[in-house]
Amino acid sequence: MSKMHLKLKVNGQEVETLAEPRELLIHVLREKLDITGPHIGCETSHCGACTVDMDGKSVKSCTVFAAQAQGAQITTIEGIANPEGMHVLQEMFREHHGLQCGFCTPGMITRAWRLLQENPNPTEEEVRFGMSGNLCRCTGYQNIVKAVLAAASEMNSAKEAAE
């Protein structure tokens, strides 16, 4: 039951830490690496507040052992903003009031970030289905969906302008 020498790439940085295999990825991120953007909500794989991106997949980091993430590339909300400022998803969550208390927001945005890479032009229904692993206790879903759709539209316009 000895500790593992864990090597991860988190938000583009190589990081190393010691962790027991049974430690959950969310605990390693928050407590060992001081990455506190991903939140602990239910801790039972329901709420999605702990969502991070692991090797191109949105995962609930409360249901991934640290050991499973050995060698993985992780992106959290901290890695989504650009050096120039907020990511367009973050801008649109602000503009469309896509958050109330804000507790679910890091997970929401990290999930939406992957969703829009897989489906850059989703319908409202596809956004709702694609975001269905993330719960908002303020039940502000209308504006969250609006923000994600607006971000998709902004990102597509920017892409067209660049071409």
Binding site: S45, G48, T51, K57, S58, V59, K60, T63, V64, R111, L115, F129, G130, M131, S132, G133
Partner: peptide, 9 residues
């Protein structure tokens, strides 16, 4: 089955 995050794993 489940939700998107769970289906990835």
């Amino acid at each position: 089955i489940a939700d998107p995050q769970v289906r990835y794993m």
